[in-house]
Design a protein around this nucleic acid. Sequence first.
DNA 1: CGGATAATATGATGATCATCATATAACGCT
DNA 2: AGCGTTATATGATGATCATCATATTATCCG
Lengths: 205, 205
Amino acid sequence: MRYSDSHKDETHKRLLAIAGRALRAKGPDGVAVADVMKEAGLTHGGFYAHFKNKDAMLAEALSGVFDHARVKFLAATDGMPPRAALAAYIDFYVSPRHRDNPSSGCPVTALNSDLPRQSKALRSAFDAGVKAMVLGLARRIGDAGIEGDADALAASVLSAMAGAVAISRAVSDKVLSDQMLATARESIKARLGVDDAGLSRSARQ
Amino acid sequence: MRYSDSHKDETHKRLLAIAGRALRAKGPDGVAVADVMKEAGLTHGGFYAHFKNKDAMLAEALSGVFDHARVKFLAATDGMPPRAALAAYIDFYVSPRHRDNPSSGCPVTALNSDLPRQSKALRSAFDAGVKAMVLGLARRIGDAGIEGDADALAASVLSAMAGAVAISRAVSDKVLSDQMLATARESIKARLGVDDAGLSRSARQ
DNA sequence: CGGATAATATGATGATCATCATATAACGCT
DNA sequence: AGCGTTATATGATGATCATCATATTATCCG
């Protein structure tokens, strides 16, 4: 082996990180292979030594983004009681900060309307990511002792959160956009009983 | 005037209808000028006699789609009492049928994650459409005597509805997708007090 | 029915892009 | 240092596409 074991691996990971950001910022069709390579300090030709094709890169990058988000989520809510963790997650997700930073945000928000038009490979990666998110949310909802079908509730909460952020991004009017986020955030928390009223009520019990 | 007054106008309208459908089915970047012309039985060259450029066509088509949706909405709920109208609208919007027919569905659902990456012209048309939808919803909410800030509630309800349908489209798993829709639908209606329980309660009063 | 003109067609042009064939250069072992 | 190998670069190729210049056709008035 002429190059160090890790050399190509590191480039590969760098490409995935760049692609993951570009994917969320510009959408699947907006990502240009040559641009990704250039951002990594390389030229376009070497691309196919790293990926079968553009599609494979995007799918791999998307999986990575979901994995990374899961890790961040767990770290951020580590040690919190389940209701507080849910509330914190919702506050974090349905926020102006998330809205204003698509390239480091949730891919469900960034890509939802693009996805139906994408390749099978990318859709599969997306499916897996959404399922993992729903599963994680459902577990928290169960842990929190919230009544109702935790899976169904989780799926619906995810769609409400992602929808609110996605549409707040799509709208240019800042007042409307902020209002959408704030109202959605409170309504989702209220629905799960993890709004301020709900949290203090459960703390009293 | 060699051609009848209406000739070009009719072609123009036909192009807009085709573009409106293509826009929702394929996204703004997926619409090809030549394809729109071909579908209208024309060739690509004549396009610029009808529109300044592709962008102008899309923006005009999007406005038309929103206008058309408003008319359909009013017709469909005409004469209904406000709560029943709201319930019917939510049932209609957050439905498998809407999910499965993007090209004739709501553009907020079909385009939300594409929009931040689009031209100013298209974003303006989208903004105007969203505002009109929020306004209409808020009026119904007010008419129904639902407590709370009607504007904020309307914005949040729209984002929940559009988000649910958009993400149910993005997900390939039919069970998850159906579940998402059903739970979102019921939760949104419950929130407005126009679910079955809420409707019979208000009827009794 | 012929001719002016409006509507549409033909055919380029240049840009962007994914992909691939082939060339070069960096690396570390001997 | 030199060599083989691996990673990357150069430079096509062909596809798709928006846009425009120019040609052609269809229409309807006289």
